[in-house]
Amino acid sequence: MSILEMLQWMQGTGIGIALRKSNHLVGAAFQFAHVLGFVLLLASVTLISLRLLGLAFVKQAPARIVDTGNTALGIGLAAAVLSGTLIFLSGPVRYYSNEFFRIKIVVLIAAVLFQASLFRVASRGASEHPLAAKAAAIVSLLLWFGVGASARMIGFI
């Protein structure tokens, strides 16, 4: 099965059809959840990075801020991914044909993998290896803001 056939199949499923036929304000409601979730996610990444970079909360143990940030990051990511999946299912073929959508998904996957692996290790060892934590914070910021920037471009194509 080719990617296009798979997308067309998604488009023809009950949920795909229901989403496409729903009132456009239903779509707008998913957009609210998507934007608010993403703002929370980006703010969490920013908060954690500020601590790891030594720009804020330097008197607190890094783990403190990292733990709080990670909880909020998880909530934001869940809201953004869930609403994003529904938005995508309303027009899989249309979204997939958008170049910036494909870029966004690749950067998103890279960001999630990085956050769950190297960043996790580096942020836990921030007290012993502050330089590694700083590098991880910068990569994390670039990846997640990259997701946001490419996402914003989808609508301009």
């Binding site: 934007v35 703002v39 980006l42 703010a43 803001f145 946001g148 914003r152």
Partner: peptide
Amino acid sequence: LLGLAFSVGL
């Protein structure tokens, strides 16, 4: 949009 991460987000 991205400025929101710092303003409204933080």
